[in-house]
Simulated assay, not measured.
Amino acid sequence: MTPTITAFERSPDGGKGLARDTRVRWALEEVGQPYAVRLVSFQAMKEPAHLALHPFGQIPTYEEGDLALFETGSIVLHIAERHAGLLPDDANARARAISWMFAAVNTIEPPILELVTARILESDKPWTWERMPLVVDRVRDRLRQLAARLGDADWLDGKFSAGDLMMVSVLLRLRMSGILDEFPNLAAYVARGEARPAYKRAFAAQLAVNTSELPTA
C-alpha cells in the first residue's frame, strides 16, 4: 500500500528543505518506497480533519491503511523498521542507530531551534540580542560534543543509518548561521548527507511544490 504524507501547501522556507516533510521524503526515498503527498494550507492544518491526524496541527503526517502517525522521528523510525536500508541488521548496531535518532531531535535540535526562533520570530524583542550570545554558545557546546564523537568518520556509527538521516536534517537548520562552518568535520558530514541521491530526490520534490504555481479559483 502506498503511504500518504502531508506537507505544506507553501513552506515557510520556500522549499529549502528545512520543512520536516523533507525528512520523511528522504527516508522513503532511501528505502525505495513510493509515496503520495497531500498538501495542506495553514488554515487546513488547524481544522478537525487534520487535527485528527496531528493533534498539534503541524506537518508531516503519515497514513498507511488504518495507520496514522505524526512526528518525524516516529515516522522515520516506522519506515526504517518496515523497510531495509536505514537500520543495521545487527541488534546492537540497530539500537545505537535509534539512539542517534533520539539524540538528533532531543539533544541537538532544541538549542538549534532556540537560535532559529530568536533570530526569526523574536528579533524585534528588546531582550533577544542580549541573550543571543548564550543561545549561540549552547549550540556551539552541542556541536563541539558531536564533532568530537564523529571525528574523521563518515557517519555516526558505521554505515549510514536513520540516525544520520535525522542528524543531518537537524544540522541543516544551521546552514544560514555560519556556525556549522566552525566545525569542518560536521560541515563535511552534512555535505555527505546532501550528496546522497535519495536526499537530492527528496529535496527536489519539496522544492517543486514551492516553485509551482498554485491553481486559482
Score class of each variant (00 low, 15 high):
158 G>M: 12
206 Q>H: 15
60 P>I: 07
209 V>E: 05
23 R>H: 09
25 R>H: 09
183 F>M: 13
47 E>M: 14
60 P>M: 05
203 F>N: 00
69 L>V: 10
179 I>T: 01
207 L>P: 04
49 A>I: 11
100 W>P: 02
58 Q>F: 08
104 A>H: 02
139 V>L: 04
203 F>G: 00
195 A>H: 04
110 P>F: 03
215 P>C: 08
93 A>T: 02
89 D>E: 12
191 A>Y: 09
177 S>V: 00
82 R>F: 10
185 N>W: 13
111 P>I: 06
193 G>D: 00
136 V>R: 09
158 G>L: 10
93 A>D: 14
129 W>V: 05
47 E>W: 11
67 L>F: 12
33 Q>L: 01
1 M>K: 13
181 D>C: 02
84 A>V: 09
24 V>M: 00
50 H>V: 10
181 D>V: 02
138 R>M: 11
42 F>L: 15
73 G>T: 11
76 V>L: 00
66 D>G: 05
69 L>H: 07
96 R>F: 01
162 A>V: 00
26 W>E: 00
199 Y>A: 06
16 K>N: 12
32 G>P: 08
63 E>C: 13
94 R>M: 03
43 Q>N: 14
217 A>P: 13
192 R>Q: 13
49 A>D: 15
188 A>S: 13
63 E>K: 14
104 A>Y: 01
30 E>C: 12
169 S>A: 14
43 Q>G: 15
72 T>Y: 08
88 P>R: 02
63 E>H: 12
60 P>K: 06
119 R>A: 03
68 A>K: 15
194 E>M: 06
61 T>G: 09
4 T>W: 07
27 A>R: 02
7 A>T: 07
28 L>F: 00
174 L>K: 04
202 A>Y: 08
6 T>S: 13
205 A>P: 03
30 E>R: 03
150 L>C: 13
166 M>Q: 11
155 W>T: 10
155 W>C: 08
135 V>C: 01
98 I>G: 02
86 L>W: 04
182 E>F: 01
186 L>N: 04
171 L>P: 00
206 Q>D: 15
72 T>D: 08
200 K>T: 11
209 V>W: 05
215 P>I: 09
